[in-house]
């Protein structure tokens, strides 16, 4: 394998609170090859969102290093795309204008016409054709999340960071969006980090699942996922998937500080 695109080495970080420093990350290791898609799971409040902010260059770790494409991350860089649980679309813009927002900030070689064509193409890819001129308030939660996804990749970022993007959606919409993600990845290859609470989501979307320990988080367990080919929701119901989910569930229980034996009962 060539040099990893994202590399996190021995990262430690603590937030300063009134009660003293609160360590959230302690010895975090993560490595994502180009084109890889890693899901990060762990107990709530274990520092998963801190991890996304580190990779995006929105904050610096107290200790350790974050590398993107062989360069040390020291601040925000335009080669990153982000989507959150809250789609944070700008209410005063149309969906098309929302998707084009990053292109107004990042310099691209595309002219206005090409920018618009690209945004329209992405919207069609995620199934939002015909909604380009609607306002975000006129769309459902799932549709807003689709638009937010388009905005995250419109400037062709090297790295896509997804921080529980489907967390607030109902189960059916979520499964629809998982399939949309595969469609997008097939047409617009990206290297991604997905933060999630949903183990099924992690093995369905990612090719590697990283389990973080409880706070302060370190890398506790890494699992390579081998659901290959055209992924279909049915893949989640095979014995292999059940086995993988079981292993991950045990790891989460360990991370929560419960021993698997007592948790299973």
């Amino acid at each position: 394998m060539s040099q990893p695109l994202i590399e996190i080495k021995g990262v430690r970080h603590a937030y300063k609170t009134q009660a003293g420093p609160l360590p959230v990350l302690d010895g975090l290791e993560l490595s994502v090859p180009e084109g890889g898609f890693v899901a990060v799971v762990g107990p709530s409040g274990c520092g998963k969102s801190t991890l996304t902010r580190l990779v995006a260059g929105l904050m610096k770790p107290d200790e350790g290093e974050v590398w993107l494409h062989g360069e040390r991350v020291k601040g925000p860089r335009s080669t990153v795309g982000m989507a959150f649980q809250n789609p944070v679309l700008l209410e005063w813009r149309t969906i098309l204008q929302n998707v084009m927002l990053p292109l107004e900030i990042v310099s691209t070689k595309m002219n206005k016409r090409e920018q618009e064509d690209r945004a329209r193409h992405l919207l069609a890819l995620v199934g939002l054709e015909g909604f380009e001129d609607k306002r975000p308030s006129e769309l459902s939660g799932g549709m807003r999340q689709r638009a937010s996804l388009c905005r995250a990749i419109v400037h062709k970022p090297e790295v896509l960071i997804l921080d529980e993007p489907f967390g607030a959606l109902d189960a059916f919409t979520r499964e629809d969006l998982w399939q949309t993600m595969h469609k997008v990845k097939a047409e617009e290859p990206f290297t991604g980090v997905l933060i999630t609470h949903d183990l099924r989501e992690s093995i369905f979307l990612a090719d590697q699942v990283v389990v973080l320990s409880g706070r302060p988080a370190r890398t506790q367990y890494v699992m390579d996922v081998h659901l290959t080919g055209d992924r279909d929701i049915e893949h989640l119901y095979t014995p292999e998937s059940a086995e993988a989910l079981n292993v991950l569930r045990h790891q989460i229980q360990i991370a929560q500080g419960r021993s698997p034996a007592e948790a299973v009962q």
Binding site: S78, V80, M82, L90, L101
Partner: peptide, 26 residues
């Protein structure tokens, strides 16, 4: 909401850009 700021900051936008594009209209 901090996410609004993060969306633009992660792209390397300046405080002024964030003010004009997001904070003011919002």
């Amino acid at each position: 909401e901090p996410e609004y700021r993060d969306i633009l900051r992660s792209l390397g936008a300046s405080q002024t850009t964030i003010f004009w594009k997001i904070a003011l209209p919002k």
